[in-house]
Design a protein around this nucleic acid. Structure first.
Length: 892
RNA sequence: GGGCGAUUAACUCAGCGGGAGAGUGCCUCCCUUACAAGGAGGAAGUCGGGGGUUCAAAUCCCUCAUCGCCCACCA
């Protein structure tokens, strides 16, 4: 094993460590009969994607959960794979073709799909390599892709099953059409954005006056859609329009005659109370049209130009047509007015083009029957959301669920397995590719469309375990344990996995715990976006801070909050933390030497008892914290223990025994003391490294392999070493020792404070008198040597009746007085100012607490422990005030 | 229109019913044989405003303000 460098260098360490994990095949997990397993499926990144901050966070979370579980001995598999990402991949390949001056239609469907596979072969492993760089412990030997042949079989099976069960149907509906992607989208793939628009008020003349009315005013935000109007609707109870219901309106510009109908949907208080109805381009208007038997005129082509139905406007782009229609209406004096109007406009979630509601034939899934059991699964606690509040978001969506448009007019994806026979007019879904009609033997044609990518990714937790085959993996690892993801795909993916999982796998949920992690925003609080240049590349972060530094920095920021405003300084401090641990470990290892005999930890001194007690507390905090997914709390606890307790105090407290025990003239007692402290250092470090490993896998592994462990404690890798048993470590809990070290820390800090105030050189010893009585005195007496060592004290004396020597600076710490002899150094003005300030503060505190103790309500109603605690506090403050008064008097 | 989250030190955030904390930054001193990516000491906050509940409120309730997110058939 190589020499430990002075500074931890992730570049040198991470590669070989990861390779050793791969070689050890620790990531792989076969079926082990009779032992309860634990599985996690990775949210499959898009095959087009590269690692972004959301991935970095989410995969750190999963790796932490998975690594902890693996160390507990549960057979653990983290299933890996990528998503074929229909629209995203198709866009990439189309862009590539465009650079060759061609479109997908030039190359044809077959070659285009081959191009997509080629693209996947070239770029598809990018993100997997990046996961490895992060140290993610996925099973890389079992990588899935949502277009794998077996996965295609699973998708097809679900489609056919649901089709035959009547859950999938085809219909002519208003769907969301993206003119740029040239495909339908589901409702939740549309992102609504409030935009400043306009509300145009148009005057539609009646063919013949009715009830004294010559024309009806209607309002619209999309004037060009008037080309497709097929009726005017008013509310049935609206007195103003009572006489025109049933009358005929002459549609401006086109001259089409359309009726006025009465419909409950119209809000009589909005605008004029009359609505133009365009059944082919608005979902509400579609409903009205259905109810009144009005024609549905589609005035838009797939690319959002005006269709032949648009008369003189045919061929114009939708926005150009808008301008022309408005201008023509104004010229005809049919434009009443134009208001500014803030309204919500739908955009494609892939390319942000404004979508058009468009009437077309599409495939849908009837969701209500699927949603019911999935709602019940959350209600009865089989599926639990973390944080819990997301459960309500889930219920709200699931209980108002609408049918899912699953057909996409793309080429890259799972082709809809429905075959049409034009000869006998039948259609059927089939597991096998059909060429001829089973009924009439005429040739059949397959549906041209592919399925929504989410239709295939919803099968991820069971299709990656071999479903529809009843594989041993499926029987063993399903349901999985944890699903961690971002909140923006709660509906798109998580809810649908629960529904499809329960539908396909015997009603069994796909996972028990759902972690909805925070969204990572940049330092300005804006969404990280590659295209906007507001993103941060996790790979850059890893080169600066190491994989461990990035991971731990993210964990520190993963609190209950729903957003993270990314703070890079947390990564810097995490890198420093790795270095701190590295050096502390180097210190421990350098102090083991030839003479080290491994053995059990032992609380031989107060310091030993204290650090073992703190370790017991840490083990409990980390274990409970990870089980309840409170990553921020766990990271903080590890950081505070290792840095502020182990490094700052225990190692310092250990130094005298280490050096004394190895001196030439060391006796048997001194040598034994050295051995004890060595064993304690190794034990505490070993345990802490195990607890830290899930969050900082590389540095912990590198150090741990160097520790001289034996027997049960040893393993080939920390990855597969035993997770600390917090119940077993709990035996070290020692509140008395914790209090003692607290007093020691206060006294040492007080002496150091005085030294700093008078800039006493580090090597200079100072003489100190401690004024203490009773238990304090004997406690301090026990810690004499250690206080002296830590505070640079020469002569340390304890005296119950001491008064402050003339040339001393004084401090009050933890109820005892400390006098530091500083011949000729003390500045009495400085001391006076300081002591009187402290006295003021102490008196204010005392006054406050005494008022409280005089309050009868407090004495009667507060819990006894609190009253007792405050009484003790008051007593201590009284002593402090007395001491400070005396000091001030002496300074006068 | 409905729902959710946030508002604590200059910055990023913990704390969520009993004496205001961390990291970063800032000030002073120190290359003391684990660590200068460090050590020691220090300054810094009427816990968004206003009500209320309670012996006790940063913490619970109401309300207002500001910022952010989600859902909704806002012509």
């Amino acid at each position: 094993m190589s020499e430990m460098r002075k500074a931890y260098d992730p570049d040198v360490v991470e590669g070989p460590i990861f390779e050793s994990w791969m070689n050890g095949r620790y990531f792989e997990q076969p079926v082990v009969e009779g032992v309860e397993p634990f599985a996690v499926v990775i949210p499959p990144p898009n095959v087009t994607g590269s690692l972004h901050m959301g991935h970095a966070l989410n995969n750190t979370i999963q790796d932490v959960v998975v690594r902890r579980m693996r160390m507990t001995g549960r057979p653990t598999r983290w299933v890996l794979g990528t998503d074929h990402a229909g629209i995203a991949t198709q866009n990439k390949v189309e862009q590539k073709l465009a650079r060759e001056g061609r479109t997908r239609h030039d190359v044809g469907r077959e070659e285009f799909i081959e191009r997509c596979w080629e693209w996947r072969r070239e770029h598809g492993s990018t993100i997997v390599g990046q996961l490895k760089a992060m140290g993610c412990s996925c099973d890389y030997s079992d990588e899935w892709f949502t277009m794998d042949p077996s996965y295609q079989g699973a998708v097809r099976k679900v489609f056919v099953d649901w089709y035959e069960a009547g859950l999938i149907y085809r219909g002519k509906r208003i769907i969301n059409w993206c003119p740029r992607c040239s495909t339908a989208l589901s409702d939740i793939e549309v992102e609504h954005e409030d935009l400043d628009g306009r509300l145009w008020h148009l005057r539609y003349p009646l063919k013949e006056h009715a009830g004294g009315i010559e024309h009806i005013v209607v309002a619209t935000t999309r004037p060009e859609t008037m080309l497709g109007d097929t009726c005017i609707a008013v509310h049935p109870d609206d007195e103003r329009y009572r006489d025109v219901v049933g009358a005929t309106v002459v549609l401006p510009l086109l001259g089409r005659e359309i009726p006025v109908v009465a419909d409950e949907h119209v809000d009589p208080t909005f605008g004029s109370g009359a609505v133009k109805v365009t059944p082919a381009h608005d979902p509400n208007d579609f409903e009205i049209g259905e109810r009144h038997g009005c024609p549905k005129i589609n005035i838009l082509n797939a690319d959002a130009t005006i269709s032949a139905k648009g008369g003189p406007y045919a061929g114009l782009d939708r926005y150009e047509a808008r301008v022309r229609v408005v201008a023509d209406l104004e010229a005809a004096d049919l434009l009443v007015k134009t208001d500014d109007h803030l309204h919500s406009v739908g955009h494609c979630y892939r390319c942000h083009t404004v979508i058009e509601p468009w009437l077309s034939d599409q495939w849908f899934v009837d969701m209500k029957p699927l949603a019911e059991p999935a709602i019940a699964a959350a209600r009865d606690g089989r599926v639990v959301f973390h944080p819990k509040r997301w459960e309500n978001v889930y219920y709200h969506w699931m209980e108002n669920i609408r049918d899912w448009c699953i057909s996409r007019q793309l080429w890259w994806g799972h082709r809809i397995p429905v075959f049409y026979c034009d000869a006998c007019g039948t259609q059927r879904a089939s597991m096998d590719d059909l060429t001829v009609c089973p009924d009439c033997t005429d040739p059949v044609r397959q549906d041209e469309d592919v399925l929504d990518t989410w239709f295939s990714s919803q099968l991820w937790p069971f299709a990656t375990l071999g479903w529809p085959k009843r594989t041993p993996e499926l029987e063993y690892f399903y349901p999985t344990g944890v699903l961690s993801t971002a909140r923006d795909i709660l509906f798109l993916w998580v809810a649908r996995m629960i529904m499809s999982g329960m539908s396909c796998v015997d009603g069994e949920i796909p996972f028990r715990d759902v972690i909805i992690h925070p969204t990572v925003f940049n330092a300005e609080g804006k969404r990280m976006s590659k295209s906007l240049g507001t993103g941060i590349d996790p790979l850059d972060l890893m080169t600066h801070y190491g994989a461990d530094g990035m991971r731990f920095g993210l964990m520190l920021q993963t609190t209950g909050n729903q957003d993270i405003r990314f703070a890079e300084e947390k990564l810097a401090s995490s890198r420093n933390f790795a270095n701190k641990i590295w050096n502390a470990s180097r210190f421990v290892l350098l102090n083991l030497g030839e003479d080290y005999e491994p053995g059990e930890p032992h609380a031989a001194t107060v310091a030993d008892a204290w650090i073992l007690s703190r370790l017991a507390s840490l083990a409990a905090t980390v274990d409970e914290g990870l089980l309840s997914y409170r990553f921020g709390d766990v990271a903080r606890a590890l950081h505070d223990f290792l840095w502020n307790e182990f490094c700052d105090w225990y190692i310092e407290l250990a130094k005298p025994r280490l050096s004394t025990g190895i001196a030439e003239d060391a006796d048997a007692t001194a040598r034994a003391a050295r051995t004890t402290v060595q064993r304690n250092l190794v034990f505490v470090l070993d345990t802490a490294l195990r607890l830290l490993h899930p969050m900082m896998p590389f540095v912990t592994e590198e150090i741990w392999r160097r520790l001289p462990l034996s027997g049960m404690a040893r393993a080939d890798s920390l990855m597969i070493a035993a997770w600390p048993d917090r119940a077993a470590i709990a035996r070290f809990a020692d509140p008395d020792a914790e209090r003692s070290i607290e007093v020691l820390r206060e006294i040492v800090t007080a002496i150091r404070g005085i030294r700093a105030r008078y800039t006493v050189a580090p090597r200079t010893r100072v003489d100190v008198i401690v004024k203490a009585v009773g238990t304090d005195a004997s406690l301090i007496e026990d810690l004499f040597g250690q206080i002296a060592a830590l505070a640079g004290v020469g002569d340390l004396r304890i005296d119950a009746a001491a008064t402050k020597p003339a040339h001393a600076a004084a401090a009050v710490a933890g109820g005892v007085e400390v006098f530091v002899q500083l011949e000729g150094l003390v500045d009495f003005d400085v001391e006076r100012e300081r002591v009187s300030k402290q006295l003021g503060e102490a008196r204010a505190d005392l006054e406050k607490i005494e008022r409280k103790l005089c309050n009868e309500g407090f004495l009667a109603k507060a819990v006894p422990e609190i009253v007792e605690k405050d009484r003790a506090k008051a007593a201590e403050l009284r002593e402090t005030v007395t001491a400070l008064r005396a000091q001030l008097a002496e300074l006068a």
